[in-house]
């Protein structure tokens, strides 16, 4: 039972991160390899708002950090990625890699390389909760699962019924046509970057609250990436399934086989997927020819 719970927690972490990859890719065909770094920025923003005494409650600190993260995402598009529209897909991907390196350096400069504990700063207790017989998890892990479910529900609803969600889907299917029909492409792309960074930041903050924060958190972002690809880079539902597959294989490997393999296996699964079905479990086949 504990194992199921572990898979669920890890799967939630990966899901919450990988939806960020999907949103940007679905809308703009850009693979954002700086997503892990943007997630880190969100977590560090929480550290800063947590230190600001005038905010009063922990919820205010989290809320302000989330608003700031959304702004960061939009700014990344407006200031940088907007210039890459029309460039080759490759140039855009390389730009995100460069952005990631820039952020890594900047984060250490701004917040130092030390370990931080935002939960202690916010006076948030993180007790162990017995969910089932002999299966426990921490309070924040439980919140993480809930937040992941809520985030995906909101994203599905937004994409399905929201006016801007419709515009995003339209842009993703055919940007030229959407533009001709009066969709403001820059606004749509900026929104996609904003939402993606927002969800990433939520994940980053919850991880930091649960187990502390330092700059190695970006590696978690990279590990969530196979999950997005296995599920299909342009499918939100795929991101969940992919995350569950990756986390289940990781947890089971740790429990029953060699834990060291847990580092390489997500990428082995990814290669297998690329050989058998490169567009992912739920991805659209035509995607392959467009990149």
């Amino acid at each position: 039972m504990q194992i199921v719970l572990n898979i669920l927690v890890l799967g939630s972490i990966y899901s919450l991160i990988s939806c960020g990859y999907v949103i940007i890719y679905k809308v703009s065909r850009v693979l954002n390899l700086a997503h892990g770094e943007l997630m880190m920025v969100g977590a560090y923003l929480l550290l800063t708002t947590a230190s600001a005494g005038w905010l009063g409650s922990p919820l205010a600190a989290i809320g302000l950090a989330l608003v700031l993260s959304l702004t960061v995402g939009i700014l990344v598009y407006v200031l940088l990625m907007r210039r890459m529209t029309g460039e080759s897909v490759l140039a855009a991907v390389l730009t995100t890699i460069a952005l990631g390196i820039l952020i890594r350096g900047a984060v250490v400069l701004l917040w130092s390389a030390q370990h931080h504990y935002p939960a202690t700063k916010l006076h948030i207790a993180n007790p162990s909760i017995e969910l089932f017989q002999n299966a426990k998890l921490s309070l924040i892990s439980l919140i993480l699962i809930g937040v992941t479910v809520a985030t995906y529900a909101a994203l599905f609803a937004f994409m399905r019924f929201g006016r801007w969600g419709l515009r995003m889907r339209a842009t993703g299917q055919n940007a030229l046509l959407a533009a001709q029909r009066g969709v403001n492409l820059h606004a749509v792309y900026a929104l996609a970057w904003g939402i993606s960074t927002f969800t990433g930041a939520v994940a980053g903050m919850l991880i930091a609250l649960d187990s502390g924060l330092d700059s190695t958190i970006v590696m978690i972002g990279l590990k969530a990436f196979p999950a997005a690809l296995v599920g299909g880079l342009d499918s939100l539902a795929g991101a969940i399934i992919g995350s569950i597959i990756i986390s289940a294989s990781e947890v089971i490997l740790i429990q029953h086989f060699n834990p060291l393999l847990s580092d390489a296996v997500p990428f082995l699964i990814l290669i297998a997927m690329l050989v058998i079905r490169p567009w992912g479990l739920f991805g659209t086949r035509e995607e392959l020819d467009r990149v």
Binding site: L10, Y14, S211, T216, L222, V251, I254
Partner: peptide
């Protein structure tokens, strides 16, 4: 338990 450095969640190792 031999744990790879970038580990998102230590619970699976702890569980084992």
């Amino acid at each position: 338990a031999i744990i790879p450095p970038p580990t998102p969640d230590y619970t699976p190792f702890a569980t084992k």
